[in-house]
Structure formats: structure tokens, C-alpha cells
Computed example of a mutant assay.
Amino acid sequence: MEKRMKIFEVEPEGYKALVGLEIYVNKTELTHTHKELIKIRTSQINGCAFCLDMHTKDARKYGETEQRIYTLNAWRDTPFFTPEEQALLALAEEVAQISGHVKDETFKRAVELLGEKYVAQAIILMVAINSWNRIAISTGMMPA
């Protein structure tokens, strides 16, 4: 894939609006671990190399282990993730693949383990990372 445009130069106001969502997410109660797991897993599903590169580096900076990063795409088959992380990852997968809808049981499990406010904040993050993935992929952003 070749770089197609720098969208922040072509449409700075739209880009700035999405940055505003990111600023909000950074002020939420979501832990760094939860944020990065959601960003990495969503970026895996969407196939966004730019975001995978960025967020695996960020995850390591916040103390995430190589083992968990490497097995994230198979999280259901490992003992490495907490029930709360599993609930968030299941929700993130269903939000990323929204045409299949978010199942009631997935949503209820997340709320049961994390509370309604935390899940609401997580969904906003999930929407944001899906947006960033789509911008990066459609404009040809490449990892440095």
C-alpha cells in the first residue's frame, strides 16, 4: 500500500474532531491496559498495520507483556487475560464487526463485570479506534 494523503493536512477540522474524541478517552476511568488491549485487538480485526505498530509499542510502554500481546488474537484460548479483559475483548470484537451486532450476553457480561459507565467509556474508545483504523487504512498510513 502506498501513502495516499495526509488527511490531517487535507481536512484538519475533521481530523481535529477525532482528536477531540481521543482527548476525551484519555480522561476516562479506562486503564491503560484496557485501552491498549482494545486498540490492539480492534486493529488486528481491521488489519491496520499503522495502529498495530503504534499500540503494541504503547502497550509495552505501559507494562504489557510480550506473551499477552502475541496471543491477543487468540485470547479465548489462553489463561492470560482476566474476566474483565475477556469481556472487553469480546465486546471490542463485536463492535469492530458490527454487522453481526453486539450480542445481549456480551453486553450484559461486560456491564456485570465492569459497570455501565466503564462499558460506556469503553464503547466510545472502541468507536474511536475503529475510526482511526479506517482513516489509517483508507489513506495509506504506514508504520514508521
Rank of each mutant, 00 (worst) to 15 (best):
L52Q: 10
E22P: 06
Q67D: 07
P79Y: 00
R76M: 05
K16P: 00
V19S: 10
W132T: 05
E112H: 07
Q86S: 07
Y15P: 01
E2G: 00
G115T: 06
F80D: 02
Q86C: 10
E13N: 14
T28W: 15
D58N: 14
T33D: 12
S138F: 04
E22W: 11
M141F: 03
E22M: 07
K108P: 01
I98W: 12
D53S: 15
S138H: 06
C48P: 04
A59V: 15
G115I: 08
D58V: 15
E94R: 06
A74R: 09
T33G: 08
L89S: 03
K6L: 03
G20R: 13
L52C: 11
V95M: 12
T139I: 03
N26H: 14
S43Y: 11
K27L: 12
L18H: 11
I98N: 14
D53H: 14
G14N: 14
H34Q: 11
Y70A: 14
A90G: 08
E116I: 02
E36A: 13
V127W: 10
R41W: 09
Y70M: 11
S43G: 10
C51H: 09
Y118Q: 09
R4P: 01
T106D: 08
I98D: 15
S99D: 15
A90Y: 01
E85G: 09
I124M: 11
R76E: 10
H101P: 02
H55A: 12
A17V: 04
V19A: 12
H55L: 13
W75N: 03
Y15T: 08
K16C: 04
A74T: 13
G100T: 10
G20T: 08
S138D: 02
A120W: 13
T71D: 03
T78I: 06
V10W: 00
A87Y: 04
R109G: 01
A128G: 08
V10I: 04
S43Q: 08
A144M: 06
E93L: 07
T139S: 04
M126G: 07
E93S: 14
A92G: 06
